[in-house]
Nucleic acid binder design. Structure first.
Lengths: 343, 343
DNA sequence: TTCTCTACTGTGAACGCTCACAGAAGCATG
DNA sequence: CATGCTTCTGTGAGCGTTCACAGTAGAGAA
């Protein structure tokens, strides 16, 4: 019986113990551990049995020391953290990435680059090779951390199309433009003819793309572009409210509005309610994101769902491919129209 | 100029390079790195300068290999994940733990034990020594993972008082009983005399404690216990709604109700509204948790705030202490009454 | 002077693994 | 019977640290 102090932990079995137990050499055990090529079935079997008997688990530190890989990846958030942690889509993303990595037996390190100090610390940590790659959630507008990592050659996959970075960085994004097209087509199919829009910030790819989709469909349908029908917002509820007020002022005959985020759409609903417009009878409202806000508002919002579960899976896939030597890639995933009460 | 293939990464400088650069030995550099005892000021200075010049970052794998520590800790979620990732308090906890660990330069590994496979995999991973300790979010009712970790002697700190585990496991929790007392005292101070309660699940410590606080204050105030005023729920909105209906039936003269969670309180508000009772004029409603639901409901909920930011900081502190050899500890933190419109 | 003590520094040996290499065994080919 | 090829196995070196130990230098005491 081994003396084991309170909280003490036995040193776990090593590859040596397994080799002795199986009657083979360390090399053979290592080969079994890493794919099992050039190992006889008999040895294979003996080693596996020994591993089971001893409860052996590979020491990743020793492995990493020699391979130079860490077999772990970082999930890096350079945005102001509050906003993201409150966003359920972000949570789905984080959860999805963790699970996707788990199937590869790769741990996820959560990295929050809130302060300047943290940014410096994490940049050093990452470039020192303590992770093999980074899943990046960033605002993309000249993010210095992302830029440094890219320069250091760290495999990187962004969530959403990055701006201001060369094509060297992979990304996975929902098809914003096509989602917007779907929504506007849907509004037209309901017979609406004066379709307004509250855009997102136009210095982000998402904001630009959603506007472009709106314009494309209206043009295809034969409408001239009416700038009175378009106001811009910043994704906040307040900006939606203000936007709707301006729209009502400039285009009182508006009978539908496509809002670039659910949160803004909540503001729009409030403004319409105050102005005495019924939704959807007088004005149909379409949102974007399928956030809980869409379900919580009344009437419930028709919206565009982004495939966050697939986005996370793809981010992991692309990152691992890139770590494996493949070139950076861009993946665009289709969105889905979710019809509810507001249209 | 070093040839550097696309995506290739230079091998970072080692302790050897620093030693050569500083004109000292590896041992001296190592001593500087680990506290700097028994190092002359001159050497200290030379090493630090060399570290800055070379951009040296310690290779944690090599260090871990010899020290046996991993200098990383796991954040383990054994609950059904959906519920927690939707809970903003959980997000505050996760964020707080990550940040608290960051100040110690310790990375946090996110571990989601959703499926049975994952549970097995993570248990092996943890007991193999790949993390030095675990921050645990669990339902505590005979959690087999937690039990195994405890038996293996892995330092463990739970969030909320665990049930069914010996005193060997540390935990940090809000003072549920005292929070409940504060709320009920508050309701009495408003002149209410028929105070009902919708409890949480009574097989959890939190549920029991909140009920106990309620009972204590009423007893102190000289009220006899009236079982018609107490119904139990399961923290869900629906159970709050059903609970309020039963309360109204059994005690129509109820003029206040303490609800053990904000989500249930939302249900209570809905039921009261349907029954034509005005809040707070006819019935005052007090919640628990200070979740966003409390702010989103109308009227806004008076509630009890749990100090999640302090809870995360304490969990990290206790865990690190335990890793450092100290005994398991229990920490109870005070709650805060947040007065809003519903009382 | 010699000895002891303290403050500091360098050295080799690990930690547990992978990888390159050497070699053995089996089998077909010249 | 040698030769080559394929499949398999063992061995030594080394990844970048820390740690124990041995040593050096200088100060103070005997």
């Amino acid at each position: 019986m081994t003396m084991n102090a309170a909280g003490g932990r036995r040193r776990p079995p090593t590859i040596h113990d397994v080799a002795r137990e199986a009657g083979v050499s360390r090399g053979t055990v290592s080969r079994v551990l890493n794919g099992g090529h050039y190992v006889s079935p008999a040895a294979q079997e003996a080693v596996n049995a020994a591993i089971r008997r001893t409860g052996y688990v590979v020491n990743r530190h020793a492995r990493s020391l020699i391979t130079g890989r860490s077999d772990s990846i970082g999930f890096l958030l350079t945005e102001p953290q509050e906003r993201f942690f409150e966003d359920p889509n972000f949570n789905v993303l984080l959860r999805g990435c963790t699970q996707a990595l788990a199937t590869h037996d790769i741990p996820l390190l959560l990295m929050l680059a809130g302060t300047e100090d943290e940014r410096r610390r994490l940049t050093r940590y990452i470039t020192a090779g303590h992770v093999d790659g980074v899943l990046l959630v960033s605002n993309h507008s000249g993010d210095p951390v992302a830029e440094q990592l890219r320069e250091a050659g760290v495999p990187l996959v962004a969530c959403g199309k990055p701006i201001g970075m060369g094509s060297k960085v992979s990304y996975v994004a929902a098809d914003d433009r096509d989602g917007a097209r779907d929504m506007v087509r849907h509004l037209l199919s309901l017979g609406r003819r004066r379709v307004g829009m509250v855009t997102g910030p136009l210095d982000t790819p998402g904001g630009v793309e959603r506007l472009a989709g709106y314009q494309e469909v209206l043009a295809e349908a034969g409408f001239d572009f009416d700038e009175r029908l378009v106001v811009s917002g910043d994704y906040s509820r307040a900006s939606g409210e203000a936007g709707a007020e301006r729209l009502l002022e400039r285009a009182p005959d508006m009978d539908a509005v496509f809002v670039a985020s659910d949160l803004m759409a909540q503001g729009v609903l409030a403004a319409l309610h105050r102005a005495g417009r019924r939704v959807p009878q007088d004005v149909a409202v379409g949102g974007f994101d399928d956030s809980p806000a869409a379900l919580a508002s009344s009437p419930e919002l028709t919206t565009i769902r982004q495939p966050w579960d697939r986005i996370s899976a793809e981010m992991v896939r692309v990152l691992l491919a890139q770590i494996g030597g493949e070139d950076p890639a861009a993946v665009i995933l289709p969105t889905e129209l979710v019809k509810r009460e507001s249209t």
